[in-house]
Design a protein around this nucleic acid. Structure first.
Lengths: 145, 145
DNA sequence: GTGCTTGCAAATCGTTTGCAATAGC
DNA sequence: GCTATTGCAAACGATTTGCAAGCAC
């Protein structure tokens, strides 16, 4: 299915900008922030504005074509993978990773919700990612001081 | 145990402001934002500054005496209950509720973390809280228009 | 041409920073 | 007196808003 058709299945009118943004999200599963999307796309789309990036990402979320992650306190990031899956934030480098290997019990909604109506679940982990942990281990072995 | 002693157990030097803030957090389990803490305390502490509120809340989190929640995209909120428990955000009224009744499997760290070192877990639900759901139901029965 | 989409500039809001005043040992 | 804490004002950065221009059917 083309991105054009994919947007239609989510009731999103496919404009040039929307297609490019969705294509970017689908291709680069890096959980980009609005800022990142803008800076990566603007070289090839000189007239693209940040406002459009913000508007479009918000539209995708509203229409269920993307999810917004609030795992990073500083800025929201976006994921076109709309299946429920856990996320991991590295506090060192700020990267967000998928964690599909987490057992999926958490995805089921609890029976007792105190009467609240739940329509979204997010499981967030935070810590130090593999790469940063390795970097730190090396530093300890041969310190630069 | 007094708040003074409680702060000491977390290696936090108990100043006037720190005691008041921690007392507020312990007494009012409403997951306040920094702004809320400030506006609720400043009437009785006229010289209190927002900077101090931000500094102090950050200190509490660093020392493990409070946790920061990023469930609300707009602003961080704080919880002096440092036990692992799920949270629910009402998208209508913005309130954050504890959900202690959620089965606790999710609190256990997954075996396969792709090599990442996890030191924090958060489970967030979002939807419509009981009060807001009731309000909406009433509106439907006797619409004002 | 009508209505939605885009893009610019300015505004907003939460949070941080620089630095001087203050408090507590 | 020295060090850590506090508080003000300014800076900052992410996001939103108002509005004019552009596009598509």
């Amino acid at each position: 299915m083309s991105t054009y058709e994919y947007l239609l299945t989510h009731e999103i009118k496919p404009s040039q900008q929307r297609i490019c943004l969705m294509e970017f999200l689908l291709k680069h599963r890096i959980h980009p922030t609005a800022e990142e999307v803008y800076s990566r796309l603007s070289p090839s789309m000189p007239t693209l504005s940040k406002t459009t990036v913000y508007n479009t990402l918000k539209l995708f979320v509203q229409k269920g074509a993307a999810q917004m992650l609030t795992i990073d306190e500083r800025n929201a990031c976006f994921d076109a993978d709309i299946t429920k899956h856990a996320h991991f934030l590295c506090k060192e480098c700020g990267k967000v990773y998928d964690l599909h290997e987490v057992p999926s019990h958490w995805q089921q909604l609890p029976e007792d919700t105190l009467g609240h109506l739940i329509d979204e679940v997010q499981l967030y982990y935070r810590g130090t990612c593999r790469k940063c942990a390795e970097k730190q281990a090396k530093k300890k072995l041969k310190p630069t001081k």
